[in-house]
Nucleic acid binder design. Structure first.
Lengths: 108, 108
DNA sequence: TCCATATGCAAGTATTTGTTTGCAAATATA
DNA sequence: TATATTTGCAAACAAATACTTGCATATGGA
């Protein structure tokens, strides 16, 4: 198998999505994050490591603390991928479809 | 571990993203999909099964064929999650930041 | 009916994931 | 300097993933 370290992998796990959410609000260190979960510090540490490898967070070592920051622009890749299909479910698309139908029936 | 069957899991794998892309263009059966990959039919079959479990595709049995359709509106969940952070990297936000900076410096 | 086609199911394998516990190392503070 | 805090590393483990190959089954067409 192959190790996949991209934003899609980063957000695949719900715990990781939560961590991203927390860091988006406020940069914080590992222990501070871990305290907010019902899970061992090590488990969170691993998720943080993965998020870092996926490039979606940045870690800044200050003394013994490692402050994590969200690098949200990495979500752009996901956003771009998803939005190419957005037209298939948004209202705007429904309206466009309707419009095209109108044109079609007129040209008959 | 726990089985996660949601759109985030569906799009975490690059092969599955490709399958979604293909089905978005044209509904097709399993073999037709498999032929376009350098991978066994079984491997694709498994991905299709997972996509189905994640609710992102629909399978329609017609005779011996199983036609797969993309159900792209399921991506809405991903889209919504990502877009809550969009302001942090879009130009619009950059412009807003700049504006706030201007206000700040003026109020000094 | 015979054969090709479309698919499922089962077993097997290597790797990854998500998690825990215990221990070591570095840094801050009293 | 002694102690508490923040963290990393390593080992362990069960379950999931991403594949493969081989065989069975159902359907469609000659």
């Amino acid at each position: 198998m192959e190790l996949r370290r991209d934003p899609f992998h980063a957000i695949a796990d719900p715990t990781r999505r939560q961590i991203i959410g927390m860091l988006a609000q406020k940069p914080q260190n590992l222990n501070s994050l871990a305290e907010q979960f019902d899970m061992s510090r090590q488990a969170i540490s691993l998720h943080v490591k993965i998020l870092n490898e996926c490039g979606i967070i940045t870690i800044n070592q200050i003394g013994r603390e490692r402050i994590c920051h969200a690098k949200l622009e990495k979500l752009e890749e996901v956003s771009a991928w998803v939005s190419q299909y957005k037209e298939f479910w948004t209202e705007r698309f429904a309206a466009l479809e309707k419009h095209l139908e109108t044109i079609k029936s007129k040209s008959k």
